[in-house]
Design a protein around this nucleic acid. Structure first.
Lengths: 98, 98
DNA sequence: AATATGATTCCATAATACTGGAAATATGGT
DNA sequence: ACCATATTTCCAGTATTATGGAATCATATT
């Protein structure tokens, strides 16, 4: 994964609201959570929430699946693992940090 | 590590220039790199670079050590490991991502 | 003291992000 | 067709971030 895209993912997670969203989604597991449930959990206005979710989706960290009127958001573990992998690689290249 | 501070660290790394700086520092190992060397590597104006480094220092991801006129920047592996730990914990709580 | 080097702070500008109400879209039920 | 629900897009306004030249600070050398 290249530097710019990695930075974009980190930036997406680098906001308390979005990190909170992502945390909820990770805890929710593979079936994810409806946007409305996230809204109830976090108490963020629908419009604001939608913007944040869109940012997470744009980076690939979250994917969406529609089930009738309800839109489920799911954390993409593979993308997340890639991101962590990048950080670990960079962090463990030379010295005894791991 | 709490959510807000985690988000701050992610935000600090979530910028291509700063991620580039951090990457250099990680690769440089325990003795770190002088600010001037980073500047030569990245070709960023001194002032701009200083702002970015300050942001990394503020979050604790980078620490500085003065050696005469030269200021060395060093990546803090423990803080980085904490950050990765937070992400891994959140990512591996329930489902089979690891 | 004067000068040079390494780096930061001051300051202003431009760019980007965050926020949220109101209107629009998507889907399903009656 | 009409209404209700779930969510997004439009459209601002406000706030924060990024950028970099010029001035300043910190340290060393002569």
């Amino acid at each position: 994964m290249e530097l710019v895209k990695t930075a974009q993912k980190l930036e997406a997670l680098g906001n308390p609201t979005r990190l909170g969203i992502f945390k909820l989604l990770v805890q929710a597991g593979k079936k994810g959570l409806p946007v409305g449930d996230i809204q109830k959990s976090l108490g963020v206005p629908a419009s604001t929430l939608s913007h944040h979710i869109a940012k997470l989706v744009n980076t690939g960290l979250v994917v969406q699946r529609r089930e009738s009127r309800t839109l489920f958001c799911v954390a993409d573990y593979v993308v997340m693992q890639d991101l962590i992998g990048y950080l670990v690689d960079k962090c463990c290249v030379k010295d005894s940090c791991c």
